[in-house]
């Protein structure tokens, strides 16, 4: 016995097949968030008090010094969202990772950066964007499974030139991220940085670091000449 498919049923099958193909396509290529062309920044010209809401009576999150702790340069923070009545919402460095709070726009300078950094932990790769366009990709060493590189949205707190004898030279881009495992390391607060490989072991493309992102000498020199304070760093799985 043969069963002839009716035209209506045939259309249904075709539609189902198309839906499955379309669905498979969507899952096969997950949509990546577009990299913005520009990131607004504020440079602090005086210490500020970061609050939970844009009003003077709001809860204090923390005080933000006007100078960065390692190099004593002006503190620069990325802006999140629009300003509101003399207040601006910014990303904060330190624990817990990824905090935002409101500071007054008084005694700040508005700046912007066209740069963005993305760290892909699974690919062990760092990508530099300018104006939302890929400029360079670098192979990297990322955190070991026991001391992982924290994921989330961070920023470059300060760029540091390291002495020739220092581990991780010649440059380090110290980020706002802190290790979720190591509360203290080498006298520091477990700060995560993108840095070089001077006096450090490990092959590029592996996951053997204590949480920092290690890059080749050429890569970190290229980045240090371009990536300044406040540049967003997004770490993804």
């Amino acid at each position: 016995m043969t069963i002839a498919a009716s035209p209506g049923r045939r259309r249904g099958i075709v539609a189902l097949a198309l839906a499955l193909i379309a669905g498979a396509g969507v899952h096969a290529t997950p949509a990546r968030a577009a990299v913005p062309a520009e990131q607004a920044l504020v440079v602090l010209t005086a210490p500020h008090v970061a609050r939970a809401h844009p009003r003077a009576s709001a809860r204090v999150i923390q005080s933000v010094p006007a100078r960065a702790p390692l190099t004593r340069v002006r503190t620069t923070l990325p802006v999140v969202g629009p300003a509101r009545g003399g207040w601006v919402r910014v990303m904060l460095p330190g624990r817990p990772n990824g905090r935002t709070a409101w500071i007054r726009t008084y005694r700040t300078l508005r700046r912007s950066t066209p740069w963005q950094l993305r760290v892909d932990l699974s690919a062990r790769r760092v990508t530099a964007y300018r104006d939302g366009v890929v400029q360079r990709r670098f192979r990297a060493i990322v955190g070991a499974p026991g001391t992982p590189t924290p994921r989330g949205r961070f920023f470059v707190e300060e760029a540091v030139r390291l002495a020739a004898t220092a581990a991780g030279g010649p440059y380090a881009l110290a980020t706002s991220a802190r290790s979720t495992v190591l509360q203290e390391f080498e006298g520091g607060p477990g700060q995560i940085a993108l840095h070089g490989t001077n006096h450090l072991a490990g092959a590029l493309g592996t996951d053997v670091s204590h949480g920092c992102v290690r890059l080749s000498d050429a890569a970190i020199r290229w980045l240090a000449a371009r990536i300044g304070r406040g540049v967003p760093v997004t770490v993804t799985r």
């Binding site: 004593r72 540091v160 390391f185 080498e186 520091g188 371009r226």
Partner: peptide, 20 residues
């Protein structure tokens, strides 16, 4: 205006206190 991209930054010296 926008300053050109080739303006090279010159980070200042600082200690190495990162997780490595």
């Amino acid at each position: 205006y926008r300053a050109c991209a080739s303006v090279a930054l010159r980070p200042t010296y600082g200690p190495s206190q990162f997780t490595g």
